[in-house]
């Protein structure tokens, strides 16, 4: 196995919702990445051919955007204390600000 392939060692699904679907033209995509959230989103951005996707999830300082709801296997990133390590089969969901009642 090549070094690059070893680093890109997990396969994760990225799902987007609401306005993001129209903007990026996909609902869900499975990508091979390095197991970091950043890596996942960067690989997905490459796959859909739109680098903007990265800034949909991260702010200028590289932090996950406060005004996005990011869920990993249904758990909000803000509730998951500590570093996120994605595993094969994980599902990451990104929502723009939405609400209802």
């Amino acid at each position: 196995m090549l070094v690059w392939e070893m680093q890109q060692s997990v396969v994760v699904t990225l799902k987007v919702f609401a306005t993001l679907r129209k903007k990026y033209g996909f609902r869900e995509i499975e990508v091979r990445c390095d197991g970091t959230l950043r890596g996942l989103v960067e690989e997905a951005a490459k796959a859909v051919g739109n680098p903007e996707l990265v800034y949909e999830v991260f702010d200028k300082d590289g932090k996950p955007r406060d005004d996005r709801i990011i869920m990993i296997n249904g758990r909000n990133l803000k509730d998951l204390k500590g570093r996120v390590e994605l595993k094969t089969g994980d599902v990451v969901a990104v929502f723009p600000p939405i609400a209802g009642g």
Binding site: F17, G74, A93, P96, P97, I98, A99, G100
Partner: peptide, 21 residues
């Protein structure tokens, strides 16, 4: 973002996916 964009664009039904997720 919610009262200016989320609710006007999608209404309340937009919650289905996030609550299910």
């Amino acid at each position: 973002p919610v009262t200016g964009e989320g609710l006007p664009t999608y209404g309340t039904a937009i919650l289905v996916n996030i609550i299910n997720n």
